[in-house]
């Protein structure tokens, strides 16, 4: 896990329980990135990654929340859910794998992969009993991307 941000701006938390919450999270993400002076494309990439995470919460878990945090260099979100955890994290990252519940059947199943591609760094902590925490950040000036995961079982 990367270290906590040193000069955090006022953080925001959005509970995710309906589709409307996903919309709110998307918009909040985009506005936050815009306020921080991110390029237009980066704003949308951040908002889309947040949307993926929020949609995952909606489809795979009973409930959860998206938290935002930012400093001068980067913007990050943390998606926390109380779902069943991701059984095989490495597989979940392969596009087209996650079938999810009947609700989401037929999705492209590349939500996690998409987050990894849209953001500069992603960490995933998942466990069967505690749910999943996805934390991802995006730098104002993109550099090489990192991906790390842990799966304590």
């Amino acid at each position: 896990m990367f270290s906590p941000l040193t000069h955090p701006r006022p953080a925001a938390t959005i509970e995710i329980s309906t589709a409307a919450d996903v919309l709110i999270a998307q918009r909040r993400a985009r506005v936050l990135a815009e306020q921080l002076g991110f390029a237009r494309r980066a704003q949308w990439e951040f908002a889309t990654a947040v949307s993926e995470a929020a949609t995952n919460i909606l489809c795979h878990a009973s409930g959860g929340a998206i938290e935002f945090d930012a400093d001068d260099e980067r913007v990050e979100f943390t998606a926390i859910d109380t779902g069943a955890g991701i059984a095989d994290l490495d597989r979940a990252l392969v596009d087209g794998v996650s079938l999810g519940s009947a609700l989401e059947r037929g999705s492209l199943g590349c939500g996690m992969g998409a987050i990894a591609r849209l953001m500069d760094g992603v960490t995933v902590e998942t466990s069967a009993c505690r749910g999943t925490i996805v934390r991802a950040y995006k730098r104002r000036h993109a550099t090489a991307r990192t991906f790390r995961s842990s799966c304590p079982r």
Binding site: Q26, R27, R30, W44, A47, T48, S51, E52, T55, C59, E104, G106, S107, L108, G109, C110, G111, A114
Partner: peptide
């Protein structure tokens, strides 16, 4: 639709 994520794209495809 402001943000199109994979789920949205998949719904559109369906």
């Amino acid at each position: 639709v402001e943000v199109v994520d994979t789920a949205t794209a998949s719904h559109l495809l369906q």
